[in-house]
Design a protein around this nucleic acid. Structure first.
Length: 199
DNA sequence: ACTCGGATGGTCT
DNA sequence: GACCATCCGAGTA
């Protein structure tokens, strides 16, 4: 069943990032259902985290959605080519987010292959934050989408991933964040071939 | 196996 | 004008 708003609106974004492992992410775009199982996430906190786009209350056209109550999508273009998909968490005005970085493809694989221009499922179908958005058809137009709706949503389909199968490590690509770059806020399912290749 | 650089465009100062 | 929560292909080994 769909994850309720109460899941997203909890205060601890790091715990939510951990809890999102094993949850299912779906899109129904153009009448086509695609989705899979989340195997890699990163937490971004509005306080004490220089890597977070809402650090120090930064409020711009891009970040304003982060200040909504949890349960909406935050999408943005990075490096002029890729769209990244985040889940906004916490209560209104507490601008936390979880970046989805890796997905095990489950539903609508032929459509995902088409969108990615591949012929066979492989790691680069959905293993990486800029790749899974392509496979699922997520674009910057999904900025602010309600995650309890019928376009883009998450489901709870299995037991939480066991603690011994969760790897926590430093987040990726945020050298600009100084000492906060070392926070172990990246979570992966141990042994999954569908996580991003980034170190 | 790995390192390195180019693509590419919105956002922010 | 600089930066960027990325990815891929080319080069070396």
């Amino acid at each position: 069943m769909k994850l309720p708003l109460s899941f997203y609106q909890r205060p601890d974004v790091v715990q939510i990032a951990r809890d999102l492992l094993g949850k299912y992410l779906f899109t129904n775009i153009g009448g086509v259902l695609t989705g899979g199982r989340i195997v890699e996430t990163e937490a971004y906190a509005h306080i004490n985290d220089q890597a977070c786009h809402s650090h120090l209350g930064r409020y711009t056209a891009r970040t304003k959605i982060m200040y909504q109550a949890g349960g909406v999508a935050y999408t943005y273009l990075i490096y002029g080519r890729y769209v990244l998909f985040n889940i906004i968490t916490n209560e209104e005005a507490k601008a936390d987010a979880v970046l989805i970085r890796g997905l095990e493809p489950i539903e609508g694989i032929s459509e995902m292959l088409l969108r990615r221009g591949l012929h066979q499922p492989a790691r680069n179908l959905t293993g990486g934050p800029g790749l899974l958005t392509q496979a699922l058809g997520i674009t910057t137009q999904h900025y602010g989408t309600d995650l309890t709706g019928d376009l883009l949503w998450l489901e709870d389909r299995q037991e939480p991933v066991a603690e011994e199968l969760v790897v926590a490590s430093a987040r990726v690509g945020i050298d600009y964040a100084g000492t906060d770059a070392a926070l172990p806020w990246r979570f992966r399912v141990k042994g999954s071939p569908w996580t991003s290749p980034a170190r």
